[in-house]
Simulated assay, not measured.
Amino acid sequence: MVSHRRSTQSGFTRGVRVTVVSAAAATAAATLTAAPASADPKETRESAKAAVDRLYEEAERATERFNEAGERVDRLRGEADRALDATARGQDRVNRMRDELGAMAGAQYRTGAIDPSLALLLSGDPDTYLERAAALDRAGARQAITLNKLRHAQRTMAQNRAEATRALSDLEHSRTAVARHKRAVEGKLREARRLLASLPAQDRASFDRSSRSGRDAAPDLSGLGPASGRAMSAVAAVHQALGRPYVWGANGPSGFDCSGLMQWAYAQAGVSLPRTSQAQRYAGRMVPLSQAQPGDLVAYRADASHIGMYVGNGQVIHAPYPGAAVRYDPVGMMPVSSVTRI
Results as ranks from 00 to 15, higher is better:
L196M: 12
R204I: 05
A184Q: 10
G187K: 00
S272T: 14
P274R: 06
R166G: 02
S206W: 00
L196V: 02
D216N: 13
E163T: 15
W264M: 02
S174I: 03
L199V: 10
A201W: 09
K182W: 08
R155Y: 11
R193S: 12
Q240C: 13
L171Q: 01
R244M: 15
A179P: 11
K182I: 03
G187Q: 05
Q143F: 05
W248P: 01
N160C: 05
K188N: 14
Y246I: 03
H181W: 06
A141R: 03
A265G: 01
L242M: 09
G270I: 09
G140N: 13
W264F: 14
P219D: 06
A184T: 15
S222N: 10
R212Y: 12
R138N: 12
R180F: 14
Q263L: 15
E172P: 10
P200Y: 07
A201K: 14
A179C: 08
G229S: 14
V178I: 06
L224N: 00
M262C: 11
A201L: 15
S222R: 11
G255N: 04
H152T: 15
A231Q: 12
R161A: 08
A218E: 12
Q263Y: 08
A241Y: 07
A217Q: 09
R194A: 15
A217C: 05
S174M: 15
V235F: 14
A197M: 09
M262K: 00
M232Y: 12
A227F: 07
W264S: 04
H173Y: 06
L147N: 06
S213C: 04
R151H: 14
K188S: 07
L168C: 02
A201F: 13
A167W: 03
I145A: 11
L199W: 06
Q154A: 13
G187P: 06
R161W: 09
S174H: 10
T146S: 01
R209M: 03
G225I: 11
T156A: 14
S228V: 15
T156Y: 14
S211E: 04
D216M: 13
S206F: 01
D216S: 14
A237C: 12
G225Y: 04
P245C: 11
L261R: 02
K188P: 01
V247Y: 00
C258E: 01
L147K: 04
R212K: 04
N251V: 05
R244G: 04
K182M: 08
L195H: 07
R166I: 10
A158H: 13
R244P: 07
P274M: 08
L242E: 03
V247R: 08
A197C: 06
Q143G: 09
A139H: 06
R275Y: 07
S169K: 15
R209S: 11
A192P: 10
H152N: 08
S228N: 09
D216L: 15
S211W: 12
R193M: 06
K188T: 01
G252W: 00
H152G: 07
T146K: 01
V271P: 08
Q202G: 05
N148C: 03
A250T: 05
G214F: 02
S233P: 10
A144M: 11
L261G: 07
Q159S: 09
